[in-house]
């Protein structure tokens, strides 16, 4: 594939790196695990096979060699002006143009190819992390390559899967965070009684939230490990959700932790779209 329009941020991602947090290397990996997995299922690929993660569409590319692709996530995709269904392996021929549109809902779209995209790997994963000097985002003129595909395997795995985790006004469940009990009752109540939105000042390292100020306890913490999905509160009262490329250790109090089953939906929320939090009791 030759990239014509690279989009805002298109990077190869897989399920990320593990066992490296002790060096300060975050897991990275896909923001929507379910969509990524559905792409690889449709193509008969292993789930750790890298897919192209696309932020807010606006991507186009030309096919240089006949192959099979699958797409799941935000937006719509067309091959030469013909809309293709998500979650099903699609044949794409040399010379055809693939376009992925700007989505009205959701942020991330996943494009996979039979046998997987090839490319460099860092410490056991192909997940790109430009801020950590691990690869670059795609630019116009880049070529995405893949191995040779086995058509018989693909046709067996083709299945209808397109239920992506995009919800209107979702409820995101939270566990208590390590400093939960140090926040005032009023601060905790504010978290659950308010309407929240994702700030445009967000990225793969963390989403800042727009909403009321949460009173931060006046403690100068000794920096401690942070779990992905933690909700930290800055001294001025802004909530930030720590995500895939985020810090492994941090010094701001963490009031809560996003429930793992709601993380994909949370990470697919566009800036401005509204949601609520609910305290999850096991």
């Amino acid at each position: 594939m030759t990239i014509i329009q690279p989009g805002m941020r298109s990077t190869l991602q897989d399920h990320g790196r593990s066992g490296l947090k002790k060096f300060g290397i975050p897991a990275s990996g896909v923001m929507d695990r379910r969509s990524h997995d559905l792409v690889n299922q449709a193509l008969g690929n292993d789930r750790q096979t890298a897919t192209l993660e696309i932020l807010l569409g606006n991507v186009s590319m030309t096919c240089e060699r006949d192959s099979w692709i699958a797409i799941v996530g935000a937006g719509q995709a067309v091959i030469d002006d013909l809309t293709i269904p998500f979650g099903i392996a699609q044949s794409i021929k040399r010379g055809q143009l693939l376009r992925i549109s700007y989505p009205t809902d959701g942020l991330w779209t996943y494009l996979g190819i039979a046998s997987g995209w090839s490319g460099p790997s860092w410490f056991g994963s192909r997940s790109t992390w430009p801020e950590g000097s691990m690869g670059q985002t795609l630019k116009a003129g880049d070529e995405l390559r893949c191995g040779l595909s086995d058509f018989s395997v693909i046709s067996q795995h083709a299945a209808m899967h397109n239920d992506i985790p995009l919800k209107k006004n979702p409820i995101i469940r939270l566990w208590m965070g390590p400093q939960w009990s140090q926040f005032s009752a009023q601060a905790r109540e504010t978290l659950f009684t308010s309407e929240w939105a994702i700030s445009p000042r967000s990225n793969r390292a963390g989403y800042r939230l727009l909403g009321p100020t949460i009173d931060c306890p006046a403690i100068e913490m000794i920096s401690e490990p942070a779990l992905l999905g933690s909700l930290q509160i800055t001294p001025e009262g802004t909530a930030i959700a720590l995500l895939n490329d985020g810090p492994t250790i941090g010094g701001y109090p963490k009031i809560a932790l996003i429930h793992d089953d709601d993380l994909d939906a949370f990470r697919q929320l566009q800036p401005g779209s509204r949601f609520h939090f609910l305290l999850h009791s096991p």
């Binding site: 947090k21 002790k22 060096f23 300060g24 290397i25 950590g132 000042r201 100068e220 920096s223 490990p225 800055t234 001294p235 001025e236 802004t238 810090p247 492994t248 250790i249 941090g250 010094g251 701001y252």
Partner: peptide, 29 residues
């Protein structure tokens, strides 16, 4: 004492107590 936050970010122990200074109230982007 620790590596974390970002790759190779070394948390150092032994800062002179006279130099302890609170973090910024808003982190730089």
């Amino acid at each position: 004492h620790a590596l974390g936050f970002a790759p190779g970010f070394a948390y150092l122990g032994g800062l002179d107590a006279r130099l302890h200074t609170p973090r910024l109230s808003t982190p730089r982007t």
